[in-house]
C-alpha cells in the first residue's frame, strides 16, 4: 500500500537525504517542501498520508504549520511527525500537546527512517 509522505525542511541537503532514505522503502512516495508556506501550497492541492515537519524553519516554523493544518478540516487528521535537532523533553511534550504523532531526532539514521515513520503512524 502506497504511503504518501510530505517532508518539509529548509535544509536542501537534509531534504534530499530524507527523500532518498524514505525512498528506500518501495511503499513510500515522497514529496518535499522547503518552507511552511511551500508546504501549505502543496497541501492545498494534495493530502498526504503523513507529514514530516522540521521544527525550526525561517518564516513559518513546524509548529505553526501544524496549527495551520489543524485549522483546515481537510488536513486536520493528517498525522504529523516533527523532525528536530532540539530534542529537549519539554519540547517533545509541547509537540505532543500540539497533536503531533511523534518526534524523530536529528541526526536520524537514514536506513531506519522509514521504519520509524511506519511505527509512528501505525
Amino acid at each position: 500500500m502506497t504511503i504518501e509522505v510530505l517532508y518539509v525542511d529548509d535544509e536542501p541537503d537534509i531534504r534530499e537525504i530524507a527523500e532518498l532514505a524514505l525512498g528506500l522503502d518501495p511503499d513510500f512516495v515522497v514529496a518535499t517542501a522547503s518552507s511552511g508556506e511551500e508546504a501549505l501550497a502543496y497541501l492545498a492541492m494534495y493530502v498526504p498520508d503523513v507529514a514530516l515537519l522540521d521544527v525550526m524553519m525561517p518564516g513559518m516554523d513546524g509548529p505553526t504549520l501544524l496549527e495551520r493544518m489543524r485549522d483546515d478540516p481537510k488536513l486536520e487528521s493528517v498525522p504529523v511527525i516533527f523532525v528536530t535537532a532540539r530534542a529537549q523533553r519539554s519540547e517533545l511534550q509541547n509537540f505532543s500537546t500540539l497533536d503531533a504523532r511523534g518526534v524523530i531526532a536529528k541526526p536520524f539514521d537514514p536506513m531506519t527512517l522509514s521504519g520509524q515513520v511506519r511505527a509512528l503512524i501505525a
Binding site: E11, L20, L24, A85, R86, P107, F108, D109, P110, M111
Partner: peptide, 25 residues
C-alpha cells in the same frame, strides 16, 4: 541551543549521506 541545532543539522546531512552510501542506497 545553537550548537545543538547548528552542529546537528550538517551532521544530519553528513551522517545521512554516509549512512545511505554505507547501506548501498
Amino acid at each position: 541551543s545553537t550548537v545543538s541545532h547548528e552542529l546537528r543539522t550538517p551532521l544530519t546531512s553528513i551522517g545521512g549521506s554516509l549512512g545511505l552510501l554505507e547501506g548501498g542506497a
